[in-house]
Write a protein that binds this DNA or RNA. Structure first.
Lengths: 129, 129
DNA sequence: TAGGGCGGTACCCGATCGGAAACCAGTCCT
DNA sequence: AGGACTGGTTTCCGATCGGGTACCGCCCTA
């Protein structure tokens, strides 16, 4: 994604490969609910209605949308178990499970710097921005 | 942000603290250009016009917006050097520099799984999603 | 005096995001 | 027969995102 840059030499115009555009990749995975859903699936497959519980306030539409997106991108599989007792399970693919690593790192960092983050934001807002 | 969950016990409805909403935090830092800007500032302060070069296609408006956001959140500082030769530098704060860690992790993972990511996406799209 | 670089701002626009509400078929319970 | 639960879909709507274009004052150089 990046070819790290030396001190004060000019920035490389080719620093970001237009073919694998960095802006889309590292942070900003999926939509608003995506990372929370990944977390929910960490312990095994979950049903649609199970997921709605911790994702408080999510509407069926938003949850469906988010899940379809994760499915399309290969992070989640949708398994319909037919039979008299029909149920739909969502589970992580190996790729999706792999995403938990970077996600953990980001969560960990956020937890460690939570106070600073809040303070900085409040200062920024107070400064009129 | 999360209290990891055991195997198939029901999901904890309080899994996500409504006060520090997980969806906003771990991935999805800032907007489209934010993570690229952070990368550009890794090697030291940069001027507005320097940043435009590698961020190809970014308009002045989008860049300004993105920078203002990063400033408001305390990841970047804007320094106006007055004098006959006026110039504006943008630099990472310690907090912003700290963000580079998780960002590296995410970039690294993406690089390692790039082929799988592309394949999975293509498969997902072909499957009609 | 004209043009160019710098560091933006203002306004317009279409696309997307994401919530609210209504509805639905199938199954199960009473 | 009526109601509830599951797993959605559809429509509507307002908010935000993000790009395009035009314009701005300031400084420098030719």
């Amino acid at each position: 994604m990046t070819k790290p840059q030396a001190g004060q030499t000019p920035l490389d115009p080719e620093m970001f490969d237009p073919v694998c555009p960095s802006p889309l990749v590292p942070f900003r995975v999926g939509d608003k609910w995506a990372s929370s859903i990944l977390r929910c699936l960490e312990g095994g497959p979950r049903r649609f209605s199970e997921l709605k519980v911790p994702l408080r306030g999510v509407t069926a539409k938003s949850l469906t949308q988010s899940l379809r997106g994760l499915e399309r991108d290969g992070f989640v599989v949708r398994e319909v178990r037919e039979g008299p007792e029909r149920r739909v399970d969502y589970a992580l693919t190996p790729l999706g499970r792999g995403l938990l690593g970077p996600l953990d790192t980001a969560c960990e960092w956020t937890r460690e710097h939570w106070d600073e983050l809040i303070d900085a934001q409040e200062a920024g807002v107070r400064a009129g921005h």
